[in-house]
Amino acid sequence: MSCWDTLLQYGLRAVGIGENLLPKTDFTLCQHVVLIGSGLIWNIYFGVLALIFGFFLANALALAKASANPLLRKPAEWFIFVFRGSPLFIQFFLFYETFVLLPRTGIEIPLGFTTITLATSWLTKAWAGALIVLFLNTSAYTGEIFYGALRSVPKGDLEAADAYGMHGWRKFRRVIWPTMMRLAWPAYTNEAIFMFHATTLVYFSGFPAFSQMGDSLYYATYFASKTFNPFIAYPVIAAYFICLTMLVIFSYGLVNTYLNRHLPQNMRTKIRLRPQVIR
């Protein structure tokens, strides 16, 4: 059987399309590469969606944490503290157990004239439940990064905005927010990389992989446990992740260039491969 056949057979196995039965014996390198690559679909799905949704919540959290009103500030501080202070692994377990305890038939909300049934069973599935956990987690980390950036917006910028008669929303949109993004971007790139790395935890922590549809690490451990040879499966997934990391650095680098476009060449910050702070 050629490698092309394997690709047709297992290329979309992780999302349930194609041959259902996983290979049991005589594993080829091609099967390793194809199946682990198909699992990567989940890693990209979790990473991209969590980062997109997380970006908006993180902005809200950063502003709330910097707010003078304790009704906004305190919840934001606690949210960030809880999600940054505890292991993601425990968060996965905790949320999974919570979702499992929800009534399977759904929650009924009486509205007087009629009752709405809120379906809850989808929350125990990884595609939704794990995405919610990753979304909340990355929001907290990114929110802290944005908060730090917001606090380091130069005083001169704010005074200049005042001098132009800007205030309120206009001042925020035109002066504060762009500078905040520019300052936060290198650290945010770092967070995005670690977010993609964190997606490998999903299928090892509470959330089960239904009918063997898992992420890339799920298939890598499947191969390693079947062949008892870790020296093929893990290097393959490692290579995939190096490519993914490069892609993240490249695409965040493009945004970084855009954010820094008004600065002279020698003052632009570059996204570096070697950050001072890891996460």
């Binding site: 990389i193 790395h197 490998t200 935890l201 690490l217 893990y234 490692a238 992740f241 190096i242 990391t245």
Partner: peptide, 10 residues
């Protein structure tokens, strides 16, 4: 930086 730590742990 490129490879998730969990892969190393496995």
């Amino acid at each position: 930086r490129g490879i998730p730590d969990i892969i190393f742990f496995m």
